[in-house]
């Protein structure tokens, strides 16, 4: 088990302008990162620092301009390997399918008997608190609920590595803490590796084993904070002193970067 679950080596991403005019955008990197099997890793960083770009590289949606990424020892090139599940930052629910059919979407493409598929869908509906909305269309749900549909759609395929891009962004703080508990219990049950992008420092501090702090663009990992939480933690961890210490450290690392991101030139540490 010395091999990391996913490994990023010298990963960099530069977007060139399609029309050739203007400067290329150096969006990310260089990044070195090993995720251990079964760990809960969170990434925080100022807006526009390249978090979503990083995620798209990890699922093969785009290819890094430099460096390489391997998942379970095999290089990722151009397509998303089986075993990785992703929830995007934007609402990706299918407007023309009911909540139940949305959740079953990825599952139906798997070689799995129908009864097992249906069971998984029902379980996911219950877990995400969508039971009574199973037969409605996403347009009848709030943004936060639609995001839960997308999370459920990913979870039912039981990925070994789950990537979440600000999945709780549209939720209120209370629901967010409770959804965090759900994710934690799911993480414990499945033993999956989780990579969570968030802009909420407290969310990262509460959920993750390790938290990567990214600089403003081009995003680089400027700090990695170990939380040392027990595996059976839940949202009540926010009451502890250690929690305050973790958030404080995150903020210390991020403050300057965040000021850069909103264009404050005279940022002082």
């Amino acid at each position: 088990m010395t091999q990391p679950h996913i490994r990023l080596t010298d990963v960099e991403m530069t977007f060139s302008r399609p029309d050739g005019a203007g400067e290329d955008i150096h969006a990310l990197g260089p990044i070195q990162l090993d995720l251990r099997h079964g760990e809960f890793f969170a990434v925080v960083g100022p807006s526009g620092c390249g978090k979503s770009t990083l995620l798209e590289l990890m699922i093969g949606l785009s290819t890094p301009t430099k460096g390489s990424i391997t998942f379970e020892g095999k290089p990722i090139n151009g397509s998303c390997p089986d075993g990785i599940g992703v929830v995007f930052q934007e609402d990706a629910s299918f407007a023309w399918l009911t909540v139940r059919d949305n959740i079953a979407f990825g599952l139906r493409r798997m070689a799995l008997d129908r009864r097992e598929q249906d069971e998984r869908v029902e379980k996911a509906l219950a877990m995400m608190g969508l039971g009574e909305f199973a037969d409605v269309y996403p347009s009848q749900l709030s943004g936060g609920m639609r995001q839960r549909v997308c999370i459920a759609r990913t979870l039912v395929t039981e990925p070994r590595l789950i990537l979440l891009d600000e999945p709780f962004g549209a939720l209120d703080q209370q629901t967010r803490l409770l959804m965090g508990d759900e994710i934690l219990s799911l993480w414990r049950k499945t033993g999956a590796t989780i990579f969570l992008i968030t802009h909420a420092l407290d969310e990262a501090a509460m959920l993750a084993d390790r938290i990567g702090v990214m600089s403003s663009r081009p995003g680089q990992l400027i700090d990695i904070v170990e939380t040392n939480w027990p595996r059976d933690r839940d949202s009540r961890i926010v009451e502890e002193d250690a929690f305050g210490a973790v958030t404080a450290r995150l903020w210390r690392s991020l403050r300057v970067e965040s000021m850069k991101a909103i264009g404050k030139k005279d940022a002082r540490p």
Partner: peptide, 14 residues
Amino acid sequence: VPRVLLKTARVNGM
């Protein structure tokens, strides 16, 4: 068609 739906198709290997 929202781009994120096309991304979803790609990660599903469609």
